[in-house]
């Protein structure tokens, strides 16, 4: 048969020479190799203390956005749920009542908004579909859990912190995604 690569070599079956049979040169060679590795820089990243730098297009956990006054952007139009190829998003719409203007930006809002993180494939199509800049994918990933039902993230888990009440947490959650797909 024709060799597939040019790397094949005939096995050397010559008996060991005296120098090879005393093993010591080979052992010392091996020890020097392991010693070199001993002093080599370790590629491990100490995970909880240090994290890898994320790519700017990394798609992690979803965040439901608010505007500068802390009103929810989402109008429960359902475009994200339609766009979702994994059918992970469920929502229920409700009408804004008088006196709730400081909570919701428009007349309609999502009373219930759930994403099943076990179904989600983090494709980011919901983010692309959203006309209101209400949902985007952050730089964190879904933490592990003991129960499946814990992976159905409700609105409480997804909403970004209030920008006026908790400005620091808001900034942290926003990360460097701030205004990435701002409606112009």
């Amino acid at each position: 048969m024709q060799p597939l690569t040019n790397r094949s070599q005939a096995v050397n079956r010559a008996p060991l020479t005296w120098w090879e049979r005393i093993y010591l040169p080979a052992i010392i060679g091996g020890l020097s190799i392991t010693l070199k590795h001993f002093f080599r820089k370790k590629p491990t990243i100490n995970y909880p203390e240090k994290t890898r730098p994320f790519s700017p297009v990394f798609r992690g956990l979803h965040i439901l956005n608010r505007d500068e006054q802390g009103r929810e952007n989402c109008t429960a139009c359902g475009l994200c749920a339609v766009a979702c190829p994994a059918e992970a998003i469920t929502m229920e719409a409700a009408e804004r009542l008088p006196g709730e203007e400081h909570l919701y930006r428009e007349e309609k809002y999502a009373a219930r908004y759930e994403i099943n993180m076990l179904r989600c494939i983090f494709c980011g199509l919901c983010e692309e579909a959203c006309p209101k800049d209400a949902i985007y994918l952050s730089e964190t990933f879904a933490p592990s859990d003991y129960q499946r039902k814990q992976f159905i993230y409700s609105k409480n888990d997804l909403l970004i912190p209030h920008p006026e009440k908790e400005p620091e947490a808001y900034k942290k959650a926003l990360g460097n995604r701030a205004g990435k797909n701002e409606v112009k």
């Binding site: 392991t34 001993f38 080599r40 370790k42 590629p43 100490n46």
Partner: peptide, 13 residues
């Protein structure tokens, strides 16, 4: 620790 360092790991820390 030495095993880890020889294998390019960090070992128990």
């Amino acid at each position: 620790k030495v095993a880890a360092f020889i294998q390019d790991r960090r070992g128990p820390n």
